[in-house]
Every structure is written in C-alpha cells, then in structure tokens.
C-alpha cells in the first residue's frame, strides 16, 4: 500500500513562514510521499520561493510538486523551480518522477495544466489571437500531461498531479461562470487514456474535495482551504493489515484497478 499525502494552494508568504512545516514533522508516520499541487507562493517572487524551499526541505519522505498560476505571477517561475529543486523538491512541468519506495514503485506525472473549460462550455480555437492563444495553451497543457503520463505508466501506482482541475465535479462551490478558468476537460481525457490510480489538483479554493473522471478515476481537489489540514492522505493498493471484517478497508491491487479501466 502506498500512502500519498497531498496539498495545494498553501500560498506561502513571509507571514506564514514555518507554519506549514510545523504540521509536517511527523509526515512519515502518515505518508510515503508528499505531493504539492501548485500555488505554493502568494505572488510568485523568488523570496517566497525560498520560504517554500525552507518549508519542505529535508522532510522524511520525497516531495514532488507542480507550480500554480500564482507562482507565475512575477514571471520568476524558472528561478522558483531552481530554488525548490536545489532544496531537493522535485518540480514537474510536463515531466514524470518515478519513485522506487520501499512500499512500491510510484510514478508521478506532473504539469501545471491550464484553463479551457469543460464539455459544452469550453473555449475553442476561434476568433481573436488572444482567444486562440488561451485555447492553445489549454490544449498544450494536456499534451504535456499526456507525455508525462507515458513515462509514469511504468510504475505500479500512477498518479497525475496538476494545479488546474481535470474534471468539474471538484469545482462545485466555485461560481460556474469561472469554471473555464479553473480547469480543462482535456486533462481529464488524457488521465483516462493513460490509466491513472488517482488524480490530484488544487486551484479551486472554494471547490469540493472529491470527484471522478468520465472513466471513474478518482480525482481529489487538495487545495488547502478545501481540505482544512496540513495535507490529505490517500491510500492506494493492498493494506498490509489485510481486510477488515466489514470490508470497508478492502482495496483492489493497483494492477487490478488499472486493468479494470479502459
């Protein structure tokens, strides 16, 4: 069994330095890896990047992140990525990290993603150049995730990590007018095509934690204002403790779960 800890949208600034770390010290008691779903900084400054690096460096489990739109606000995303990588935090943008943990092999495919919208009410590549650019960036973000998923697919447990939402179920609570800026159905499509065990995203602070793709892949919105804790933990695969009498803790093996999906 793999225990995945995940949180997004911590939006750290000088006033919050150290606050999240306080909740992370016994992380390995709860989880085998930590995923950060973007919007790690408030304004995307390099100074805030260093605060994030201090918060997540030298933790007892591997930390894998994607950036969010706030981390792009000052056009310093490359420097922020470097600062985090220097602190041992893997930052993915259209890439995969395959972790060989004692509990099993986990592949994390990561990309920030982008808006576009969902079936029937999404942007299309038509009209003004600005509209086409918006739409094209949304499409490219899903292609990046698809490329990363191809690499991650070699692992026993495959996770998709984005900032923007791949489905609209986890946006419920946000005004529907802004959903095209919160997520992108093409991200959901590539997740379904790849066969993923769990998709994690952030960005929708007023959204809902639980949803699923068209093909039934569980999707979790781990924006911190949604989960209300330092991180959420999801268990994937067989429990070492076996099955409980009422069956509540029975889990499919990852292999079975994956072959069951189209």
């Amino acid at each position: 069994m793999i225990r995945v800890a995940a949180v997004g949208d911590i939006h750290l600034g000088p006033d919050l330095a150290g606050q999240h770390r306080a909740g992370l010290m016994d992380l390995d008691q709860h989880a085998d890896l930590l995923l950060l779903a973007g919007d790690l900084t408030r304004h995307g400054t390099v100074e805030e990047g260093f605060i994030v690096a201090q918060e997540y460096r030298d933790l007892p489990v591997p930390v894998v992140a994607v950036l969010g739109n706030h981390d792009y606000q000052n056009d310093r995303q490359c420097e922020i990525t470097q600062v985090l990588e220097d602190a041992g935090i893997r930052v993915l943008e259209g890439e995969a990290e395959v972790l060989h943990l004692p509990q099993g092999c986990v592949g994390v495919a990561g990309a920030k993603g982008f808006g576009l919208g969902f079936a029937g009410r999404c942007a299309s590549e038509f009209g003004e150049p600005e509209m086409k650019a918006f739409t094209r960036h949304g499409r490219q973000s899903s292609e990046q995730l698809a490329g990363a998923l191809q690499v991650a697919a070699e692992a026993e447990v495959v996770l998709a990590l984005t900032h923007y939402a791949p489905v609209d179920q986890t946006l419920v609570g946000e005004p529907p007018e802004i959903w095209p800026f919160l997520g992108n159905y093409l991200l959901g499509q590539v997740i379904d095509e790849a066969g993923v065990h769990l998709a994690l995203h952030g960005h929708a602070h007023a959204g809902t934690e639980k949803g699923a793709t068209e093909a039934g892949v569980p999707v979790r919105n781990v924006a911190q204002p949604v989960i209300h804790t330092a991180y959420a933990v999801y268990e994937i695969g067989d429990s070492p403790h076996g099955e409980s009498a009422d069956g509540a803790r029975i889990r499919q093996s990852p292999t079975l779960a994956r072959t069951a999906r189209p």
């Binding site: 911590i10 911190q224 989960i227 209300h228 804790t229 330092a230 991180y231 933990v233 268990e235 429990s239």
Partner: peptide, 10 residues
C-alpha cells in the same frame, strides 16, 4: 495549515 490530518482515505 499546521494540523496533520486525523484520518486517511482508502
């Protein structure tokens, strides 16, 4: 933000 979760989800 500083509070570890009390339970996990299978």
């Amino acid at each position: 933000l500083g509070q570890p979760p009390e339970s996990s989800e299978a």
